[in-house]
Simulated assay, not measured.
Amino acid sequence: MKAEALIFDMDGTMIDSMPWHAKSWVEFARRHGITMPADEILRRTTGRTGTECMREVFERELADDECLALVHEKEVIYRELFDATFTEVAGFTDFARQAAQRGLKIAVGTAGDRHNIAFAMSRLKMDPLPLAIVGGDEGLAGKPEPAIFLEAARRIGARPERCIVFEDAPFGIEAARRGGMRAVAVCSSHSPAELAGAHVIAAVRDYHQLARSNFLETLDAALA
Rank of each mutant, 00 (worst) to 15 (best):
R159Y: 12
G103N: 05
H21N: 11
R178V: 10
I133K: 07
A96M: 06
I15M: 01
G157Y: 01
L195F: 04
A176M: 07
G135P: 09
V57F: 12
G47M: 04
M54T: 07
H199A: 07
L124H: 14
A107K: 00
D83Y: 08
T93V: 10
D137N: 13
I164Y: 03
Q101V: 07
A111D: 06
L104Q: 09
L70I: 04
L140Q: 05
M18S: 10
A120L: 12
F86M: 12
L62N: 04
R162P: 03
M18K: 07
S188C: 05
A152N: 09
G47K: 10
V89N: 01
F82T: 04
T110K: 01
I156K: 04
A118Q: 14
E61M: 13
L42K: 06
T45L: 00
L223F: 09
A193Y: 00
H199T: 14
V71S: 05
G135K: 12
D39V: 02
D16P: 00
A221L: 14
A99S: 05
V134C: 05
A5W: 01
L150F: 08
E217V: 00
T35F: 03
A111P: 08
P146N: 09
C187M: 08
D220G: 08
I117L: 09
R162G: 06
D137A: 04
L131A: 14
W25Y: 12
F86L: 10
S188Y: 00
V26R: 12
Q101S: 14
D137F: 03
L42D: 01
D127T: 15
E59R: 13
L150I: 09
E56W: 07
L219K: 02
D168R: 00
G179W: 06
I7N: 03
L140G: 04
A90P: 09
T51M: 09
R79C: 14
I173Q: 00
R123G: 07
E194T: 10
T49M: 13
E66A: 14
G135W: 02
M126E: 10
H190W: 12
L62C: 10
L140V: 12
A196M: 13
Q209G: 05
F58G: 05
R30G: 14
L131N: 14
